[in-house]
């Protein structure tokens, strides 16, 4: 693609994910399943833990490691909402807004999160790169409305008042 067309951001050359420790983690999975393909979801989790997102090059690497095609891997990655196909903020916040949480005021929690993180809008990353906030469907904790997930931390009963204090813990 010519520069005039607005070049796609060039990716740094792909450093393989599955070397050293991550490789060991992957190989420990093989005996647990009768096919290598069944290790696809766990392998993608390993990639995301290591790199923060799953790049096309990482998909190609997973495909090679598991004997699949890159297109197949991409098809699976895009089916599941928790895999990131783009880089996200240092802290990734998921807030539930499905009916039970909506009844309990999740809209105000969303507003507080957008304001305090500086994201302004759902699905965007704050200018300082610190936070991305997205709206998600039922997190399976409706009795503890409103639950949010900050990275891997599941936080229950969030109210707008609690938002600044919670965010202060994520620098």
């Amino acid at each position: 693609m010519s520069a005039a067309q607005g070049a796609a951001p060039t990716e740094a050359p792909h450093e393989p994910v599955f070397a050293g420790k991550p490789r060991e983690r992957l190989e420990a999975l093989f005996p647990k399943y009768p096919t290598k393909q069944a290790c696809l979801l766990p392998a993608l989790w390993i990639v995301q833990e290591e790199r923060g997102w799953i790049s096309p090059a990482a998909m190609a690497e997973v495909a090679t490691v598991l004997g699949l095609t890159p297109a197949y891997v991409r098809g699976v990655v895009t089916f599941y909402t928790m895999y990131h196909t783009h880089p996200v903020g240092r802290h990734f916040i998921q807030v539930c807004t499905t009916s039970p949480c909506h009844l309990c005021g999740s809209d105000d929690v969303v507003k507080a999160l957008l304001k305090e993180t500086g994201c302004g809008e759902l699905g965007t990353t704050s200018a300082d790169g610190r936070f991305t906030v997205i709206e998600v469907e039922c997190l399976g904790a409706c009795g503890f409305a409103t639950p949010i997930l900050v990275d891997n931390d599941f936080i229950e009963s969030v109210t707008p008042e609690r938002v600044p204090g919670i965010l202060a813990g994520y620098r």
């Binding site: 399943y33 096919t35 393909q37 069944a38 290790c39 979801l41 766990p42 989790w45 089916f79 599941y80």
Partner: peptide, 27 residues
């Protein structure tokens, strides 16, 4: 006993979608 982590898809609670998901497929 093997734990298998999903990746965000309500439909994977449907029994055959769940099986596809374990097999490394779209749910």
């Amino acid at each position: 006993i093997v734990l298998h982590r999903g990746a965000g898809a309500y439909i994977c609670g449907e029994e055959t979608a769940l099986m596809n998901s374990i097999e490394g497929k779209r749910g």
